[in-house]
Amino acid sequence: MDQAGTVKKFLFVNRKAPYGSVYALEGLEVVLISAAFDQDVGLAFLDDGVYQLAKGQNTKAIESKNFSPTYRALEGYDIEKLYVERESLESRGLTEDDLLVDVQVLGKAEMAALMDEMDVMISF
């Protein structure tokens, strides 16, 4: 974004569970805004961040906004690169079938290699 016309590879790294802190929702909003800048945007979910994509979230009783449906809107924003770390899923008893969007599952080493290819990483 510092030079007009330069497309950079951005990776938004999500490592926090959705409702215990404000990180996940704030991160998602930044991602949506970033879509306006025509950059190469990807999202990575690792550690507790994988819980953000869990199917079947119901926040009625905790009176928080359920923002999980918004991950399904990302495709319409041309944000289609969603990466989830395999070890993070496995150590939490989750599989790809438990997630509410299509993702690419990567092992830790592949995730590390992906991060190494990025121009900018923004963590939440």
Binding site: L32, P69, A73, G76
Partner: peptide, 9 residues
């Protein structure tokens, strides 16, 4: 989707 879409979207 629980958001109002951007104009482009």
């Amino acid at each position: 989707y629980q958001i109002a879409p951007a104009v482009r979207v």
